Amino acid sequence: MDRTESTISGSSQAALIDHDIAHITRAMHVSLRGDFGGPILPAAYWRKRLTTLVDSGQLSSAQLRKIDSLLLQLDRFASTPLPEWERFAPAPSAPFKPARPVKKLKSV
């Protein structure tokens, strides 16, 4: 579905923006927290999504406040050091290295 300004009424546009903000609010923290391989989606992705909404120029003051709050949360996330158990995790692209040498089996 093509969402252009000419085909969406003002109230529908506001509802779509509200849905986007709600989705970002729910998904951003989980995505940034990620798993043992690191964030699922980086902070730059979420920042771009939020700035795209701001650049649309169709936001209410409540929507602007919520987006500003999310941007501040991204700043806080970027400035907070990782917990100790995540700082020492291997990089996602690093190959697994066993703790001791692996014995080769003799072929028969």
Rank of each mutant, 00 (worst) to 15 (best):
S6H: 11
P95F: 08
I8G: 01
D18F: 00
L105K: 14
E86K: 15
D20K: 11
L70P: 01
V108Y: 08
R3D: 05
A94T: 14
F88W: 09
G10T: 04
G37K: 09
L50R: 02
R100V: 15
L105H: 09
I67H: 00
R87K: 15
I67F: 01
D75V: 07
L105Q: 12
P83N: 02
P101Q: 12
A43F: 02
A22D: 05
Q73R: 09
R26V: 14
P92G: 06
G10N: 03
K97G: 06
L82A: 14
R26Y: 14
L70S: 01
I21V: 10
S93F: 10
A44E: 15
S93V: 09
H29T: 14
E84R: 14
P42W: 04
V108E: 06
S61P: 01
R49N: 13
S107A: 14
Q13I: 08
T52E: 08
S107K: 15
A14C: 03
V108G: 13
F77Y: 15
H29D: 11
I17Y: 02
S93N: 10
T25W: 06
P101M: 10
H19N: 10
A99D: 07
H23C: 03
S11C: 05
A62H: 06
P95D: 12
P101A: 14
S9E: 05
P90F: 06
P98C: 05
L16P: 00
L41H: 07
K48P: 01
A94E: 15
P92K: 12
T4L: 03
S107I: 09
S31C: 09
G34P: 04
A44N: 15
F88Y: 13
L59W: 06
L72A: 14
A99H: 11
K66V: 01
S9H: 04
R87W: 08
K104E: 15
L59N: 06
P81S: 12
M1L: 07
S12C: 08
E5Q: 06
M28N: 03
A78Y: 03
H23D: 08
K103G: 00
G38Q: 11
T25M: 02
A14I: 01
G37H: 12
T51G: 04
R47M: 02
D20I: 02
L32K: 13
L105T: 12
R65S: 12
D35N: 15
I24D: 03
D20G: 06
L32Y: 05
V108F: 05
R87Q: 14
S60G: 09
S11Y: 09
L70G: 00
D18R: 00
I17D: 00
A14Q: 06
A43G: 11
F96M: 08
P81L: 10
E84L: 14
L82F: 10
R100P: 01
Y45A: 08
M28V: 04
R87T: 14
L74Y: 03
P101E: 10
W46V: 05
Q73E: 13
H29M: 07
S31E: 08
F77T: 13
P81D: 07
I17T: 06
Q63T: 07
D18M: 02
A44I: 15
S31H: 07
V108R: 12
A15E: 15
E86D: 13
T25R: 12
G37S: 13
L32Q: 12
S60W: 00
V30R: 09
L50W: 05
F88D: 09
S107H: 10
